[in-house]
């Protein structure tokens, strides 16, 4: 009896995830137009970044608005590593992740002493500092970065150079997304996840019951920074160009946060959901209405954010869950009513 109940509770969710995964993997086979694959890649990378940001912004509740800096660091390190002849950008990507973690470690130590808005501001300050440094210098440590012009990545098409055509990128980023969801899920259901959730709810109380608050916040930040950096490295190789406007843009950081919050920060599927919905709406608007209207599509994000914060602070994901529960609840009621009738 209990076994079947358990099966009833878990099975649909797992089937749904599996179906989604299969659909995602088959997507480039079904929809072969390069244009759609291009959009899919963009949407997927935003899903990935949003999920990475969710670890610090959602689970730990620390609104690190400047975390786009790690995307930039990851991207620049990977590109420079290859350009300067040290080796494959794959190694550069990992190195970028490590450097991002080191950077996060150094700047987050003082940042975490600040709370709420001040913490957000401090992270944005560091984003701006790094951005202006990249913008202002044509070379850094003797490596050519060309300031605001950025670096073009010569096309070779070899996988060693992290170039594999649109379909290849789609699968690489999809695998990365699956990995980060697995990591997120491990964090969420582990002791660390519960600690982070306690910190998010009430930092003072969390510290009182013996949680090492700075340590766990730092861990969340470092994991988030590492994942953001990897995404940055892969994405610029897809674009074949890295410039401070793209990867150190303040808008990018904000967009990732917006996706996450609209989808539902602090949930496993929220960020993916948010980036999928908004990304698809944005791209469709852009195509249907032309590029003149593109800013209007971006303005739509702002409106969506304001509405979500006001009316559904838990995000779209929670909103959907509530709806499903309500439907289930009303169905359940009917069932129980009929049961009562039959007993009588």
């Amino acid at each position: 009896m209990s076994k079947t109940l358990l099966k009833d509770k878990i099975a649909p969710k797992h089937i749904l995830v599996l179906a989604l995964l299969v659909l995602a993997f088959l997507f480039p086979q079904i929809v072969t137009q390069p244009y759609f694959i291009q959009i899919a890649i963009t949407v997927l990378i935003y899903c990935y970044w949003s999920s990475a940001w969710n670890i610090i912004g959602g689970y730990a509740g620390q609104f690190a608005l400047g975390n786009g800096v790690y995307i930039g660091i990851g991207a620049y390190v990977a590109v420079l590593f290859h350009q300067e002849g040290f080796g494959s950008p794959w190694i550069g990507m990992v190195l970028g992740g490590v450097i991002s973690v080191m950077f996060a470690f150094i700047i987050s130590k003082p940042c975490f002493k600040l709370r709420g808005t001040y913490f957000s501001l401090a992270t944005v300050a560091f984003l701006h500092i790094v951005r202006y440094i990249i913008l202002g210098f044509n070379s850094i440590f003797g490596m050519e970065t060309n300031g605001g012009m950025g670096i073009m990545i010569p096309y070779t098409g070899r996988w060693q150079d992290m170039q594999f055509g649109k379909e290849g990128f789609y699968y690489v980023i999809l695998v990365m997304l699956v990995l980060i969801l697995v990591v997120s899920n491990v964090i969420r259901t582990s002791k660390m996840g519960y600690y982070l959730s306690a910190i998010k709810t009430n930092q003072g109380a969390a510290s009182t019951i013996g949680i090492n608050v700075p340590k766990y916040k730092m861990m969340a930040q470092c994991i988030s920074a590492f994942c953001l950096a990897l995404g940055g490295a892969v994405y610029v190789h897809f674009l074949l160009n890295v410039s401070p406007y793209d990867v150190f843009g303040y808008d990018l950081s904000l967009e990732i946060m917006i996706y996450c919050v609209i989808g539902g920060s602090g949930t496993l599927w929220g960020p993916v959901f948010g980036a999928l919905v908004l990304g698809i709406i944005n791209e469709t608007l852009r195509v249907q209405l032309g590029s003149d209207i593109a800013p209007l599509a971006s303005a739509f994000y702002g409106v969506a954010l304001i509405l979500i914060v006001r009316f559904a602070p838990g995000g779209l994901y929670q909103l959907g869950q509530m709806l499903i529960n309500k439907i289930k609840g009303s169905l359940g009621k009917k069932k129980s009513e009929t049961k009562e009738v039959s007993v009588q």
Binding site: D292, P295, S298, A299
Partner: peptide, 20 residues
């Protein structure tokens, strides 16, 4: 934080609307 988010949304709307 909700105020921060809402005003960030406003910022996004205003700057993009101006571009448009």
């Amino acid at each position: 934080l909700s105020v921060l988010l809402t005003t960030a949304g406003m910022s996004f709307v205003l700057s993009n609307l101006a571009t448009f």
